[in-house]
Computed example of a mutant assay.
Amino acid sequence: MIMLYATPRSGNAHKVRLALAFLGLSWEEQPTDAAARQSAAFAAINPMRQIPLYVEGDRTLRDSQAILAYLAARHRPGDWDGRTPEERGEIALWLSHAANEIANGPATLRLARQFGTPIAEEHAQAVTARFLPVIEARLAAHRWLVGDRLTIADLAASPYLALAGEADIDLADWPAIGEWTSRIAALPGFPAMPGWPAQIAS
């Protein structure tokens, strides 16, 4: 049985939920709030004290991008993690954007707006302003970030952009991003998340 340590509003955890749901896998979810993450029991299985944490038998994986890479290689090799060296390189690029520009821009702004977390506001705004035009341009020309299908690039990059409204970012200003996140929400098996608009893309 797969166990996912998570919280309902974690975009990073939702990346893993998306993968598990689209793969048709069953999992149990262990609610793991900030207090639980500071416990000795949790630190024993994840010394970084972060979520998501993926446990399957004796295998434990932390970091959402790493978990996505594992699930793709195990269950959807090539299709989700790249069929060619060029696709694999592009997917790695978007995983890096998810862990850097998206995390330090839109996701950080959401932390401040929704959870009152102190942030470097000017820096987060600057990162967001630099990155959004890049991904908007990509999605204006392509239905998916890499290739002609959903890959882990889309799973890694989409949650915090779908939740942009909670960061006071109006996706009406970024229509290609909004259509893409709606396209993902329209896929069979999509697991709903608070704050992710579930409208169906045209």
Rank of each mutant, 00 (worst) to 15 (best):
residue 148 D to R: 09
residue 57 G to C: 13
residue 154 D to P: 09
residue 114 Q to F: 02
residue 118 P to G: 11
residue 64 S to P: 13
residue 83 R to Y: 07
residue 131 F to M: 01
residue 99 A to G: 15
residue 72 A to R: 07
residue 127 V to P: 04
residue 48 M to E: 13
residue 40 A to F: 05
residue 61 L to W: 05
residue 42 F to T: 08
residue 110 R to C: 00
residue 88 R to W: 07
residue 48 M to D: 14
residue 53 L to R: 03
residue 99 A to Q: 03
residue 42 F to C: 04
residue 52 P to M: 08
residue 111 L to T: 03
residue 60 T to L: 12
residue 31 P to W: 14
residue 127 V to L: 05
residue 52 P to S: 10
residue 46 N to I: 12
residue 62 R to Y: 13
residue 112 A to E: 11
residue 126 A to D: 10
residue 144 W to V: 05
residue 65 Q to R: 14
residue 31 P to R: 12
residue 119 I to F: 03
residue 56 E to P: 01
residue 135 I to T: 01
residue 113 R to M: 02
residue 151 T to Q: 14
residue 89 G to C: 08
residue 58 D to L: 08
residue 83 R to G: 14
residue 134 V to N: 03
residue 134 V to C: 09
residue 128 T to Y: 05
residue 96 S to L: 14
residue 73 A to T: 01
residue 55 V to E: 11
residue 64 S to H: 11
residue 39 S to C: 01
residue 25 L to N: 04
residue 115 F to N: 06
residue 116 G to S: 14
residue 98 A to W: 02
residue 21 A to N: 13
residue 155 L to Q: 02
residue 38 Q to W: 12
residue 34 A to D: 12
residue 47 P to V: 14
residue 80 W to N: 07
residue 90 E to K: 04
residue 40 A to W: 00
residue 72 A to F: 07
residue 84 T to P: 06
residue 115 F to H: 13
residue 20 L to H: 07
residue 87 E to S: 08
residue 105 G to W: 02
residue 19 A to K: 04
residue 61 L to T: 06
residue 24 G to Y: 09
residue 77 P to N: 10
residue 34 A to V: 15
residue 52 P to H: 06
residue 42 F to W: 09
residue 75 H to M: 08
residue 93 L to S: 08
residue 84 T to H: 00
residue 32 T to E: 05
residue 31 P to D: 08
residue 86 E to C: 06
residue 137 A to L: 10
residue 44 A to C: 06
residue 153 A to G: 04
residue 149 R to K: 11
residue 121 E to H: 09
residue 98 A to T: 05
residue 133 P to K: 06
residue 18 L to S: 08
residue 26 S to C: 09
residue 115 F to E: 12
residue 62 R to D: 12
residue 39 S to G: 06
residue 115 F to D: 09
residue 31 P to K: 02
residue 45 I to Q: 13
residue 91 I to T: 01
